[in-house]
Measured scan of single mutants.
Amino acid sequence: MIVFVRFNSSHGFPVEVDSDTSIFQLKEVVAKRQGVPADQLRVIFAGKELRNDWTVQNCDLDQQSIVHIVQRPWRKGQEMNATGGDDPRNAAGGCEREPQSLTRVDLSSSVLPGDSVGLAVILHTDSRKDSPPAGSPAGRSIYNSFYVYCKGPCQRVQPGKLRVQCSTCRQATLTLTQGPSCWDDVLIPNRMSGECQSPHCPGTSAEFFFKCGAHPTSDKETSVALHLIATNSRNITCITCTDVRSPVLVFQCNSRHVICLDCFHLYCVTRLNDRQFVHDPQLGYSLPCVAGCPNSLIKELHHFRILGEEQYNRYQQYGAEECVLQMGGVLCPRPGCGAGLLPEPDQRKVTCEGGNGLGCGFAFCRECKEAYHEGECSAVFEASGTTTQAYRVDERAAEQARWEAASKETIKKTTKPCPRCHVPVEKNGGCMHMKCPQPQCRLEWCWNCGCEWNRVCMGDHWFDV
């Protein structure tokens, strides 16, 4: 396979590697080409510095992935760790964990309700045991953590790749202090920090972006993250068709209702045909949960890209028209025109101005929308079919299609509260000796007794199943 190397943020060049090629071997190839010592090179990928003893497969490097290699003399205490030698983080029983690669970060837990604080980093599902597709590297999971809308060759929703760059020099040479644990960490600028490894760059702020994971991409090709779309790892039924499908869209209502993408497309087109989208002054033209839940309008309007190009163009047109109407304007009634106009409040005669090729020149009556006339309008008909009709959803289907309910059931079956801080902690095999993952707590306690870890627990039921 081919990976592209950008040395000291210059133009990239291809390097041929195998899945079992080590990072140090990659350094040696680059060092020979650039005429520099291999031990002064640092390989940066997806916000993480890659260790010498890791392989291309370990690092989730795919065909035509772009890695950054910078030349920086080692500072005291760094060289041993980078070589894969006596790194205290690798000691058996050590409590410190390697910062998780962005290629394996899962933010789907952050669609849980606000009262489930902490689960994004504490609760991990076991539903990723799908067998890898044919042709994928051994052991590589097909679980997708992110979804994007690819405006490039795909023109559809695709699995996405999370990447990070330095907000100062805009190069992907920043190593994160810690990985993101929720969508806010990724979507809110300057929320996460790190250290830029580019020479002479003092940058410390992280800037995240997404790429389409279905095809090789260049540095400049980015895609918009659709953070309401998630892999259906909890096997929730769709609120409309009641099938279990994946991926799904999880509405931001209190129940976190789930809808499959085909039904979401149908829901949007139906509402669009009836012009029953909601115009929100802050958000724009949007839709609420299909069950009509309060405070559930979709905030990231790129989710409506699921409509496809033709329907999305209609959505944008109707949204612009609705904006004009909300501002007190009118639409030209001549067939084939429909231009938005903003006449004076007491102006009865409205002319669709033909300047700049935008208007048709038609003069019409503001009251009856017919060709302009003197005197009273002959008839004014009330528009028919403008009443909002509820999208029919079966109550039982709505009850079963809740992301929140599956989460709470998982928590109930696989977790116990920490005796000190009461945060839910998952036990997935292993011994009875637990350690609270909350940095402010870190209590060592017994899963069996529910009390602080002691010699009695150690001698009596340390390794009970």
Score class of each variant (00 low, 15 high):
Ile2Asn: 15
Asn8Leu: 02
Glu16Leu: 05
Asp20Ala: 08
Ile23His: 01
Leu26Thr: 01
Lys27Arg: 04
Gln34His: 14
Val36Pro: 01
Pro37His: 09
Pro37Phe: 05
Asp39Gln: 08
Asp39Gly: 06
Gln40Met: 09
Leu41Ala: 00
Arg42Glu: 06
Gly47Pro: 00
Lys76Arg: 14
Lys76His: 14
Gln78Asp: 15
Gly85Thr: 13
Asp86Lys: 10
Gly93Glu: 14
Val105Asp: 14
Ser110Cys: 09
Asp115Ile: 05
Gly118His: 08
Ala120Gly: 15
Lys129Phe: 09
Pro132Ser: 13
Phe146Leu: 04
Cys150Gln: 00
Pro153Trp: 05
Leu162Asp: 01
Thr168Asn: 09
Cys169Trp: 00
Arg170Val: 04
Gln171Pro: 01
Gln178Leu: 06
Gly179Tyr: 06
Cys182Met: 06
Ile188Tyr: 08
Met192Tyr: 03
Gln197Ala: 14
Pro199Gly: 07
His200Gln: 14
Thr204Ile: 07
Thr217Phe: 08
Ser218Pro: 09
Ala225Leu: 08
Ile229Pro: 00
Thr231Pro: 13
Arg234Ile: 04
Ile236Ala: 09
Cys238Val: 01
Ile239Leu: 06
Phe251Ile: 01
Leu261Arg: 01
Phe264Tyr: 04
Arg271Met: 14
Leu272His: 02
Asp274Cys: 04
Arg275Lys: 04
Gln276Cys: 12
Val278Glu: 10
Pro281Tyr: 06
Gln282Pro: 09
Tyr285Cys: 03
Tyr285Gly: 01
Ser286Ala: 03
Val290Cys: 09
Gly308Lys: 03
Tyr312Ala: 04
Asn313Ser: 10
Asn313Asp: 07
Gln317Val: 07
Met327Arg: 12
Pro335Arg: 06
Gly336Glu: 07
Gly338His: 06
Gly340Ser: 09
Arg348Lys: 12
Lys349Phe: 07
Thr351Pro: 05
Phe362Ser: 05
Phe364Gly: 03
Phe364Gln: 03
Arg366Gln: 08
Glu370Ser: 07
Glu370Met: 07
Ser378Glu: 10
Ala379Glu: 09
Val380Ile: 15
Ser384Ile: 12
Thr387Met: 13
Thr387Gly: 10
Thr388Asn: 13
Gln389Lys: 14
Arg392Glu: 09
Arg392Thr: 10
Glu399Ser: 14
Ala401Ile: 01
Arg402Glu: 08
Lys413Thr: 14
Cys421Trp: 00
Cys421Met: 00
Cys446Pro: 00
Trp453Gly: 01
His461Pro: 00
Trp462Gln: 07
